[in-house]
């Protein structure tokens, strides 16, 4: 929501997308308490995502996954200087109102939590705080942008330690952007129809060759090489969820992923930081998860 006082305005798209610009090239890490938040900040994280259970545990425990306890979010806010993000259920605008009241810096309307609305996402223009939303393809990304999202991330398949789905989503989004830049003006109508996305946004992409907001990778990133792969594919930075704190030795792995994300094209640096990190999270192959347990299919 835009508020204006004299010549000064808060909650504008520019201010919202501006924070997303500031996060580029940094690593956003899932943390469940202030100790983990401090480890993340010490390792060079550019932001933390505060949540009660990392996606791997949500997947294991089952049941309904909701917004985290405000007390736990506030403890994390008090323990670090970097931005703090938190998740709400898809469509649960009251959870978002609560997070805005806590002064959270970014809200993730996340498929990792159990959806609250099977038809509607949150009207994100209603809020002063920026939102990040997941997308599996360009149409989904543009629908979220048309609802006011300031940042798009791949969904991947969170909590699996397997990045095959994140790669699929990034390739789909970026591949379609490349194709749209080659389309003529008549073909753009067909693209908008096929993507089920606003024509004006499709036309804008044809002109600029890029998404209106930054595009980050998320879902299954567990190693420095995973982070660098996402970056080389065209992601502008990475979220690392279960990959850090479900590994044998989180602090050095976190630091290594931070360095790999900055020096993502430098194989010598990647080789150096990948050494001796201990055991990565075990991970799950996609064919071990049946359709109903997949998070990425949530969102409309």
């Amino acid at each position: 929501m835009v508020s204006t006082n004299g010549s000064s305005s808060t909650g504008t798209q520019r201010v919202k997308r501006g924070l997303a610009e500031m996060l580029k090239g940094g690593v956003i890490m899932d943390v469940v308490n202030s100790d983990q938040a401090k480890i993340a900040e010490d390792a060079g994280a550019c932001a933390v995502m505060a949540l009660e259970r990392v996606p791997a545990d949500i997947r294991r425990d089952g049941g309904v996954a909701r917004m985290s306890d405000p007390e736990m979010i506030m403890a994390i806010q008090a323990s670090v200087h970097i931005p703090v993000m938190a998740k709400v259920r898809i469509g649960h605008f009251v959870e978002a109102q609560i997070l805005q009241s806590l002064g959270v810096d970014f809200i993730d309307e996340s498929e990792v939590l159990t959806p609250a609305d099977e038809t509607h996402h949150i009207d994100k223009f209603d809020f002063t705080i920026p939102f990040v939303c997941g997308a599996t393809n360009l149409g989904e990304a543009l629908r979220r942008i048309s609802e006011g999202a300031a940042l798009i991330r791949s969904k991947g398949e969170a909590g699996t330690g397997n990045m095959v789905e994140a790669v699929r989503h990034l390739r789909s989004i970026l591949g379609d952007i490349r194709k749209i830049t080659q389309a003529d003006s008549a073909e753009l109508f067909e693209w908008a129809k096929r993507l089920q996305a606003p024509l004006s946004l499709v036309q804008e992409i044809a002109e600029t060759g890029k998404l209106q907001v930054p595009l980050f990778a998320a879902g299954g990133i567990a190693t420095p090489a995973d982070a660098a792969l996402a970056m080389q594919l065209g992601a502008e930075t990475v979220f690392v969820g279960s990959g850090i704190f479900k590994s044998a030795d989180p602090a050095p792995r976190a630091k290594a992923i931070v360095e790999a994300t900055t020096h993502f094209r430098d194989a010598d640096v990647l080789a150096r930081v990948s050494r001796g990190l201990g055991v990565a999270m075990t991970g799950i192959a996609m064919d071990e998860i049946n359709e109903t347990q997949r998070f990425a299919s949530r969102g409309w």
Binding site: S7, S8, S9, T10, T12, R14, V15, G18, L19, H81, P83, Q100, G103, V104, D105, F106, T128, I129, P130
Partner: peptide, 15 residues
């Protein structure tokens, strides 16, 4: 002073 203008909810644009 780092973040002295506040958290993201206080971020603004102005002349």
């Amino acid at each position: 002073r780092r973040n002295a203008f506040g958290r993201q909810v206080d971020s603004f644009e102005s002349t």
